[in-house]
Amino acid sequence: MNFSTPSFPTNPTPPTTAFSAPAILSGSGLVKTYGSSTALAGVDIAVRAGESVAIMGASGSGKTTLLHTLAGITSPDSGRVEFQSAAGAVDVTAMNERDRSRLRREAFGFVFQQGLLIPELTAIENTALPLMLAGYPRREAEGRAQHWLAALGLAGMEARRIGELSGGQAQRVAIARAQVTGATVVFADEPTGALDSATSDDVMSALLGSTVGQGHALIVVTHDETVAARCSRIIRLRDGRTDATAGVAAGSTGTGVSA
């Protein structure tokens, strides 16, 4: 499958020129402890629109906690997360549970390692769900979902249940679900963790094409160097801090960011 010339449905957000734009999502001085163990010990991070950032590090280095904190899933003990929404800057850390849930639903997209799609729903129903949650009529939601599935090479599989799809196909449904609302930031936690290398490559292309290719930001937690190398930037964590000794720049192969 070729994703170099993706024809994804257009979203209302215009593509932003990378690196010149202000950060769409930023965290400063993020600290999070669980009991006696420190997951984040003061992390600063800024992600721009049209940028893909890989977060790497050993198990327990705090990468998933960082992702969850940036996404408003967990609240940091101290520090601040700011998101540049269409209506202006919002302080994610100051929001209550309900508002954060709404933010995740409407402004962010998520792709997890196992997809975690709802097994009894079909591919199109899974994809349309975020739109239905946002109040779209089902017909309209499924119409948009269908476009996304087709753009991700899943035309004809709309009515299949998740169990009838391969691992790579299921991840694409998850990608479609993450982008169907036009989320400007997509968070991916080991999106290729359960896939073989060829499929992993395909899924990564689809993920980059549908996010960065649309001018949106992508934040990927991964332990796979090949996956990280495809992002425009790598942030390495060690013991809850960004590792200064690690190389900063990664190859920008296939992301189309430099365009």
């Binding site: 996404a71 849930s101 709404r102 995740r104 639903r105 975690l116 709802i118 769900l129 975020p130 949650l133």
Partner: peptide
């Protein structure tokens, strides 16, 4: 449980 947790993370309201 993991499905419910992931739905919660996606921002599905608990009432749903």
């Amino acid at each position: 449980r993991d499905l419910y947790v992931s739905l919660d993370r996606l921002g599905m309201p608990r009432e749903v």
